Amino acid sequence: MLFNQSSVFDHVDETSIIDLKTGEITPKQVKERVEHTMKIKMLENAPGSVDGITIQHFEAGTEYDLPKWMADAFIIKGYAENLEAAPTEQKVTAPEETKAAKAGK
């Protein structure tokens, strides 16, 4: 007869929290998963998998909006460029004169 009785644990699942002092069951607050994406342009053809199961072929010259982790991997390997990055200022400086060049004057 003991096993036929309803228990508080019969009403709890992975979305619930039980207060062991009061026995109160409350819904668990689940943080919404935020997927950060990045817009890239492929510089070379490369295979990749967004879900870890299906292999896709990413074509050179094509723009993609991919999860940040995947876009970063393509950029680091030189397969893609980040289209969202702000252009960086490049400074051209004259090379310093060496001691040998100064001595020759």
Rank of each mutant, 00 (worst) to 15 (best):
M1C: 01
L2V: 08
F3Y: 05
F3M: 04
N4Y: 09
Q5M: 13
Q5T: 13
Q5Y: 04
S6K: 06
S7Y: 07
S7C: 07
V8N: 15
V8Q: 15
F9G: 05
D10I: 05
D10P: 02
H11N: 12
D13K: 01
E14P: 03
E14V: 09
T15Q: 12
T15K: 11
S16P: 02
I17G: 00
D19C: 03
D19R: 02
D19V: 02
L20N: 04
L20E: 11
K21Q: 10
T22K: 11
T22S: 09
T22E: 10
G23D: 11
E24C: 14
I25P: 08
P27F: 14
K28M: 08
V30Q: 15
K31A: 12
K31Y: 03
K31W: 08
E32G: 06
E32S: 11
R33V: 09
R33M: 10
R33I: 02
V34S: 15
E35Q: 06
H36F: 11
M38H: 05
M38C: 15
M38A: 06
M38V: 10
M38R: 09
K39C: 07
K41N: 02
K41R: 11
M42D: 00
M42S: 00
M42T: 00
L43N: 00
L43K: 01
E44L: 13
E44G: 06
E44K: 11
N45I: 06
N45S: 10
N45Q: 07
A46E: 06
A46W: 01
A46L: 07
P47V: 09
P47S: 11
P47L: 11
P47Y: 12
G48P: 01
G48Y: 00
G48D: 04
S49V: 08
S49G: 04
V50W: 07
V50L: 15
V50N: 12
G52C: 05
G52W: 03
Q56W: 04
F58L: 04
F58M: 05
E59R: 02
A60H: 02
G61F: 13
T62Y: 10
E63V: 00
E63M: 04
Y64V: 00
D65S: 04
D65H: 02
D65L: 04
L66I: 06
P67T: 14
P67G: 01
K68H: 15
D72V: 14
A73M: 14
F74W: 02
F74R: 01
I75R: 06
I75V: 10
I76C: 04
I76G: 14
I76K: 11
I76S: 15
K77D: 03
K77S: 10
Y79G: 02
Y79R: 01
A80R: 05
E81R: 04
L83V: 02
A85P: 12
A85W: 11
A86M: 01
A86R: 13
P87F: 12
T88C: 09
T88D: 07
T88N: 08
E89C: 14
E89W: 13
Q90W: 14
V92H: 13
V92I: 14
T93Q: 05
A94C: 10
A94S: 07
E96H: 02
E97F: 04
E97L: 12
E97D: 07
A100R: 02
A100D: 05
A100Y: 08
A101L: 03
A101S: 13
K102V: 12
A103E: 07
G104A: 14
K105Y: 15
